[in-house]
């Protein structure tokens, strides 16, 4: 599996889907990311990332229920596929291994 398949934003979005599952859709993901990062995140950007991830097979989607604030329009709910889960954990373990090898003094200097 090529690492470049998963961009940084995509990785965050994928994680968010995993967190918010089974009620993950673009609006709540965008809100969640805004809250977590403190930066403005547009629904469109999230939606585009979701579509890319779905194309890659890391997500699957189905249409959910409609609400009044959506003007009676249905939402598209996303869930992480098994493939998506494996990719996420692999990314995580790579990171963890690298973190583990950092000498503790270095981390102290930063903070």
């Amino acid at each position: 599996m090529r690492r470049s398949d998963l961009g940084e934003f995509e990785e965050v979005v994928l994680l968010a889907v995993a967190v918010l599952s089974p009620r993950a859709y673009s609006v709540v993901i965008a809100e969640e990311l805004e809250r977590e990062t403190g930066q403005t995140v547009s629904t469109g950007a999230v939606h585009a990332a979701l579509q890319r991830l779905e194309q890659k097979g890391y997500l699957r989607s189905e249409l959910g229920e409609a609400t009044p604030e959506r003007g009676g329009r249905r939402k598209r709910l996303f869930t992480v596929t098994a493939l998506g889960g494996r990719v996420l954990s692999e990314v995580r373990s790579v990171r963890n291994r690298l973190w583990d090898r950092i000498i503790p003094q270095t981390i102290l200097k930063w903070s």
Binding site: Y25, V27, A30, E31, T43, E69, R70, R74
Partner: peptide
């Protein structure tokens, strides 16, 4: 169209 318009309307409401 449906999901996109729904999304931005909901976001606006929030």
């Amino acid at each position: 169209r449906e999901e996109v318009l729904g999304d931005i309307h909901e976001r606006y409401a929030l």
